[in-house]
Amino acid sequence: MAAIIRPATPSDAEAIVAMLRDLARGLGLEDKIRCTPDDLRRHGFGPAPAFHGLVAEQDGAAVGVCLWFASFSTFRGEPGLYIQDLYVAPSQRGSGLGRRLLAAASAAGRGEGATHLRLSVETGNDGAQRFYAAAGLRWQDTERIFLADSRAFSDLADEAGETSA
Rank of each mutant, 00 (worst) to 15 (best):
D12H: 11
V17C: 07
R34D: 09
E14C: 09
G44V: 07
I33A: 02
A24C: 02
D12W: 11
H43K: 13
R41S: 05
G44H: 11
D31N: 07
R21I: 06
T36P: 00
R21N: 08
P37E: 01
C35W: 06
I33H: 01
A18G: 13
G44I: 07
D38Y: 15
A24S: 04
A15P: 04
I16R: 07
R25H: 14
G26I: 01
L29P: 07
A15T: 03
R21Y: 07
E14S: 13
T36R: 00
S11Y: 11
E14G: 11
R42A: 14
I16N: 12
H43N: 15
D31P: 00
G26K: 06
G44Y: 08
I33D: 00
L40N: 05
L29A: 14
E14P: 07
L20S: 04
S11I: 09
F45S: 02
D12I: 10
G28H: 03
D38M: 12
A13C: 13
H43E: 15
D39I: 02
A24W: 01
R41M: 02
D38T: 13
T36S: 04
P37V: 00
L23R: 01
G26Y: 05
R41L: 05
H43W: 14
D39R: 01
R41I: 02
E30R: 09
T36N: 02
G26T: 05
D31Y: 00
A24P: 00
A15D: 12
D38R: 14
E30Q: 11
L23P: 01
E30P: 07
L20V: 10
P37S: 03
G44R: 10
I33K: 03
D12M: 05
D38K: 14
L40F: 01
T36V: 02
D22K: 10
I33V: 13
R34W: 00
G44D: 08
A18D: 14
A18S: 15
E14F: 10
K32L: 10
A15V: 04
L23N: 05
A13H: 14
A24F: 05
I16Q: 11
D39F: 08
D39W: 06
G44L: 09
A13Y: 15
E14N: 13
D12S: 07
L29S: 12
R41H: 04
G26V: 05
I16H: 10
D38E: 15
F45E: 06
S11C: 06
D22S: 13
F45M: 05
D12N: 08
R42H: 15
D38S: 14
D39S: 05
I33P: 03
R42G: 11
L29D: 12
G44A: 11
L27W: 06
L20C: 07
R25T: 15
D39L: 00
I16K: 12
R41W: 03
H43R: 14
L20W: 04
E14I: 11
V17L: 06
D39V: 00
L23D: 01
D22A: 14
P37K: 02
M19H: 15
C35S: 11
A24Q: 01
A15E: 08
I16S: 09
D31W: 01
D22G: 12
C35M: 13
R21G: 10
A13D: 13
R21H: 07
D38I: 09
L29T: 06
L20D: 01
H43L: 12
E30W: 09
L20H: 01
K32H: 09
L23M: 08
V17K: 06
L23S: 04
D31G: 09
V17F: 10
A13F: 15
